[in-house]
């Protein structure tokens, strides 16, 4: 028997029109985070930290406390909140420029201290808000505003794999990479976010979820092809999976 299902907007999500571009991954991830917060019943004690980038306006969609942070300093701001309010649930929401370029030091050191926060990393291999410049995670050969002939490894270095990098540290509790390239990927992303937030609720320590995400505009693809790019080309360089589970390395 098929039970009637009513899909509601999560309470943690506000009822507004999106400003994100058609085919953007942010909306999906915002919804997944809101669902996670709802199902853990932590909306009233959750504090989000928004980055600089397209998702700087994330608070617009989030029906719980959110603060902005300076570019890349998101984990430091989250640390400053969590340490004085240890019973609150604090997460940072960061893009690839914020997390892996300007905020690399903060990313590494926050993870290395094992701060009991959750970091949600949206990797779409490009800077969005500033107009499609090369990100630290842009793929080799990827054309962007600042790599017009494609990313050249010789002069620009290869893309950074953040899960693998963080996995060399002792303190992280959960590290996982997912790709929202289709319904299956979205389901896995929801599960990963649940694991990560649950870890924080249980006081287990630092959790990190990298989400490979479409940006049709600056990946220079149609929305459908952007999903394929995420699921094939990006996932080929950035393998999805659990890297750290309950504090133990599972995919070195």
């Amino acid at each position: 028997m098929i039970k009637d299902m009513i899909y509601d907007r999560p309470e943690s999500l506000t009822d507004v029109k999106t400003h994100y571009c058609p085919g953007c991954g942010h909306g999906i991830v915002h919804t997944l985070i809101a669902e996670t917060i709802d199902s853990l019943k932590i909306r009233e004690r959750t504090i989000g930290v928004a980055p600089v980038g397209c998702s700087v306006l994330a608070y617009f969609y989030m029906n719980f406390d959110v603060t902005e942070a300076a570019h890349g300093r998101t984990p430091s701001v989250a640390t400053g909140i969590k340490r004085v309010l240890p019973d609150r649930i604090v997460f940072s929401y960061q893009g690839d420029g914020d997390l892996a370029a300007i905020g690399m030091a903060e990313t590494i050191h926050t993870a290395n201290r094992g701060e009991n926060i959750t970091v949600v990393f949206i990797n779409n291999a490009v800077y969005g808000m500033t107009g499609g410049q090369m990100a630290p995670t842009s793929l080799i050969g990827q054309k962007t505003a600042t790599s017009p002939r494609g990313r050249n490894v010789e002069t620009m270095g290869p893309p950074l794999r953040m899960c693998e990098l963080l996995n060399s540290l002792d303190k992280p509790y959960h590290i996982e990479r997912v790709a929202i390239d289709g319904p299956d990927g979205v389901r896995k992303a929801r599960k990963a976010l649940m694991t990560a937030f649950k870890a924080q609720v249980d006081g287990k320590g630092y959790s990190f979820v990298e989400i490979l995400s479409p940006c049709p505009i600056y990946q220079r693809l149609s929305p459908v092809d952007a999903l394929k790019f995420v699921g094939t080309q990006m996932a080929a360089y950035f393998p999805v999976g659990v890297f750290r589970k309950e504090g133990t390395v599972v995919n070195a």
């Binding site: 930290v49 300076a70 300093r73 430091s76 701001v77 400053g80 909140i81 004085v84 309010l85 609150r88």
Partner: peptide, 14 residues
């Protein structure tokens, strides 16, 4: 120092 002032920001925001 950059991280320190932003930790200050977080604590003040809280």
């Amino acid at each position: 120092e950059i991280s320190a002032i932003n930790m200050v920001f977080g604590t003040a925001a809280a």
